[in-house]
């Protein structure tokens, strides 16, 4: 077998894949959150940002495919590692006992699986806009782009209308909560897997990972909550007129 193939199919190799793809995905979700927080500015801000991303063309697809590859590898490695782990202990203990393994670390598979299911919904909801969310495509707003007035997708109104459904908002908040729990283990764990962690900053990193995860949760949960409580409302004049 080729040496590189052997490396990435070994136990540690797959952990390295988990760590590196995890880092890429963490970078994405934090960047995504920062982009989304523009909802709290004037509608033109997030609409211009969305237009900027969508006008990237091949660049956008390159990023999307890169993230998809990272996600596929992350899930593939997780599935392989889980299968091996189950095989390594066919019969568990009668007396179940945990000493110091965190709740997050023991529920990575569940949190990951539910977040993956959420991701599919989220893509159908806001990215592809299919089924009942097809109507978002008809919502347009005017932005000033390079001194010209252009019609773009009204992402601001789309998010507000999307989160006005309490059920959808609840699903988003639960999923983001699970993702935050997932990250609280993952952020610290990836440094161990690639061998960068030492006892000097092990506890510090674990606490930092929790702090980052809590901030990540608050930032994300604020968006649907602000819509539900009416702090952020539709500002598109044509949509207000049609309501």
């Amino acid at each position: 077998m080729h040496k590189a193939t052997h490396f990435f199919t070994s136990s540690i190799g797959k952990k390295v894949i988990m760590a590196v793809t995890g880092l890429i995905l963490i970078g994405f979700v934090i960047g995504h959150l920062i982009g989304n927080l523009q909802i709290f500015a004037a509608p033109e801000v997030i609409n211009s940002y969305a237009h900027f991303l969508q006008s990237m063309g091949p660049g956008l697809w390159a990023v999307r495919l890169f993230l998809l590859a990272a996600l596929v590898l992350h899930v593939w490695a997780a599935v392989q590692l889980t299968i091996e782990n189950r095989k390594a202990r066919p019969r568990g203990y009668d007396y179940d006992h945990t000493i110091q393994a965190s709740y997050a670390s023991r529920t990575m598979r569940w949190s990951g699986f539910i977040v993956l299911a959420f991701l599919l919904f989220h893509l159908a909801h806001f990215t592809v806009r299919i089924g009942p969310y097809d109507k978002y495509n008809e919502m347009t707003a005017t932005i000033t782009h390079q001194g010209q007035q252009i019609e773009v997708l009204d992402v601001h109104s789309m998010m507000v209308i999307g989160f006005q459904s309490p059920l959808v908002s609840l699903f988003y908040i639960v999923a983001i909560g699970l993702l935050s729990i997932h990250l609280s283990h993952g952020i610290a764990s990836m440094f161990q897997s690639v061998g960068l962690l030492t006892n000097r900053w092990r506890n510090g990193l674990a606490n930092a990972a929790i702090a980052i995860s809590v901030l990540y949760f608050i930032g994300n949960a604020l968006i649907p909550l602000s819509v539900l409580f009416g702090w952020v409302d539709i500002q598109n004049p044509s949509l207000i007129a049609s309501l």
Binding site: S11, K15, T98, Q100, A101, Q192
Partner: peptide, 11 residues
């Protein structure tokens, strides 16, 4: 040998 994989829980 069929040992499992480390998930950094430090049990």
């Amino acid at each position: 040998a069929g040992f499992g994989n480390c998930t950094n829980q430090y049990e």
